[in-house]
Amino acid sequence: MEFYNFKKDIGVNITKFDSNFVMSRIVRTVNATHIGFMYLDPDGIIGFHQATMPQLLLVVSGSGVVRGESEEYFKVEPGTAVFWQKGEWHETKTDRGLTAFVIESEELNPGSYMAKVET
């Protein structure tokens, strides 16, 4: 399990085409990629299971905890990205609710775009 940061303060200010916004880069893929958005209500859980392919969870709102193969849980909040390799056991749960994007692709390499966070 690896943690990354996609918070606004690590993004890049974009001014091209008279734009004015901050972009936090996530990933780039060439092959098929599944992108979904998850809504976990209070006391919601994504049960303990193996990742069927490399998977990146990007927390947008709320908070919760995640774990990998060990029973140690790590707090996640908006701006936290968690990456699991194919076959890695993992779980996500929340007391108050959480929303997140999930990106699944055989070629994910979030470290090529995002800053890794040491846990």
Rank of each mutant, 00 (worst) to 15 (best):
M1I: 09
Y4R: 02
N5I: 08
K7A: 15
K8I: 15
D9Y: 15
G11K: 00
G11F: 03
G11V: 03
T15N: 08
T15A: 06
K16Q: 14
D18A: 14
D18E: 15
N20W: 06
M23G: 01
S24A: 15
S24K: 02
R28M: 10
R28Y: 13
V30W: 07
N31F: 14
A32L: 12
M38D: 05
Y39K: 09
L40H: 04
D41K: 13
D43A: 11
I45L: 12
G47P: 08
G47Y: 12
F48E: 09
Q50C: 13
Q50S: 14
A51E: 05
T52C: 08
T52W: 10
T52D: 13
M53N: 05
M53S: 09
P54M: 05
P54I: 05
Q55M: 10
L56A: 05
L56Q: 01
L57H: 04
L58S: 00
L58A: 02
V59M: 02
V59L: 01
S61N: 12
G62N: 01
S63W: 08
V65R: 02
R67P: 02
G68S: 05
E69Q: 05
S70I: 01
E71I: 01
Y73C: 03
P78G: 07
G79V: 13
T80M: 05
Q85C: 05
K86W: 08
K86L: 10
G87A: 09
E88V: 09
E88C: 05
E88S: 09
H90F: 06
H90A: 03
E91R: 04
T92R: 01
T92E: 06
K93D: 02
T94C: 00
D95W: 08
D95E: 15
D95I: 13
G97T: 06
L98I: 05
T99M: 02
F101W: 08
F101C: 03
I103Q: 01
I103V: 15
E104D: 11
E104F: 02
E104L: 07
S105Q: 07
S105F: 08
E106H: 13
E107T: 15
L108S: 04
L108D: 05
N109W: 06
N109P: 03
P110D: 09
G111E: 14
Y113N: 05
M114P: 02
V117F: 04
V117L: 11
E118W: 06
T119H: 10
